[in-house]
Design a protein around this nucleic acid. Sequence first.
RNA 1: GGGACUGUGGGGUAGCUUGGUCCAUCCUUCGGGGUUCGGGACUCCGAGACGCCAGUUCAAAUCUGGCCAGUCCCA
Length: 475
Amino acid sequence: MGDKPQKATAFVDWYLATVEAAGLTDKRYPVKGMNVWTPYGFRARRELDRVMVREIESAGSVPVEFPTLIPQTEFQKEGEHIKGFDAQVYWVTKGGESPLDVPLVLRPTSETAMYPVFSLWIRSHKDLPLNVYQIVNTFRYETKTTRPFLRVREIHFFEEHTCQVDEAAATERVRSNLEAFAAMAKAFALPFVPVRRPEWDKFPGAFYSVALDIPLGGGRTLQIGSVHHYRENFSRPYQIAYEDREGEQRYVHQTTFGLSERLLGAIVAVHGDDKGAVFPTSVAPHQVVIVPILAGGNAEMVGTFAAGLERRLSARGVRVHLDDSEERPGAKYYRWETAGVPLRLEVGGREAAAGSVTVVDRLGGKRTLGPAGLEEAIDGALRTYDQQLYERALTAFRSAFSIARRLEELGASETVRLLSWCGKESCGRAIETAIDGSLLGTPEGELPIAVGAPGPCLVCGESNDALWALAGRPM
RNA sequence: GGGACUGUGGGGUAGCUUGGUCCAUCCUUCGGGGUUCGGGACUCCGAGACGCCAGUUCAAAUCUGGCCAGUCCCA
């Protein structure tokens, strides 16, 4: 296989090799951008979904599921939206042999599927807020190079859609979504920065968009989700209106919150190292793998102890896997390190005799635990591992940003740049040209690194209304 | 939309310039046997590929044309 690509020197090749070696996906399916979820990858995705479901439901959202096909007539009702998506939707134009009177689109996102029905569901202020989400596949005809999890044509999509009584309530829902995402990101050990996108880069049809960006090193960024405020931009064309307490008809203010399997790609990209993937315990298909080490005549004793250990941990709710395959221990170590398993328990003659285990975590720590309080100690080791993983990611996150004070500093930037921007599109475009990337927008809330007040705009020198903005090179 | 490049077992590759020495190289993988087992074991036996279609030729992985697929650059 030759030399494996290194994360620091060949990031994209490293990412592809790491995803492949971990066995998360099979990209040989003969349609571009549509990959197979393998058993291992599917379990990781399922755990990821569980975290999203837990957080969004505790924020008051309920699950629904709308159909995959959307009639062209509904799809076209909002002008900006159709302009934004027209070039990348799949069309269903025939039913059997017959052309369809009204062509159908495979949903690229579900606004236009849901909103005609929302207008039927919502009559009164008592029907609000409406907070629903679904986890479904969506389809976008990507023209650029596709990559597993990061850019695909069939997307495993989480989308929340809400209807609120007014703009303030919708703004509050945006804030609530950002808070829910912060909890998810913590579970995934992924530091992120919410960024309000500039006007020219917002979601088609949105009033404004807040993207969830993470730095990948080398000045690259990855958008792993977004929260949008639609104001009345969709409720007017789709006639989603309610009667308020005073008997007035009002349009709802809407928001959406979208995430996808990009999160899984981000987890691999951020936490992985030159040995392979590194999973936080929240998404690891196996949180713990037990490797029995057989020698001489101890196979039965070691086997019995290992099997008992698997039962004890499983009974506590730990996702544990006993690797009793025929390979030698060293080969198993490599296999499970490549697959990103947080904790490996080595169990040989010494451990079986003492009732203890040798624990090696994916970040390199090694110690002996037990026999007393063994299960609790393993729980503790998992928690410690997650903390260390998060600390490591946070350190990388902080060093991924730096301040730029002059336009000339943006060329070939190896970090995401924090800079002063007056808000004008012409200046934003000049910044994008200088960095050969994007003006990501203005961070919401706390800045990723501590700085003072913004100075004059890097391009025009205007000081009034200048804000801190981020610029980088999106993957 | 314009241009450049690339397609060889499951994965990665050598061979292509100059057709024959190729029923195709090496690593990995897969099936079976044996010895092993505290960081990718060794060994024996076996399996598996020239993107597709045409053409040139005594002879095509190699040359020509078309198609398909993919990658990169530019708009």
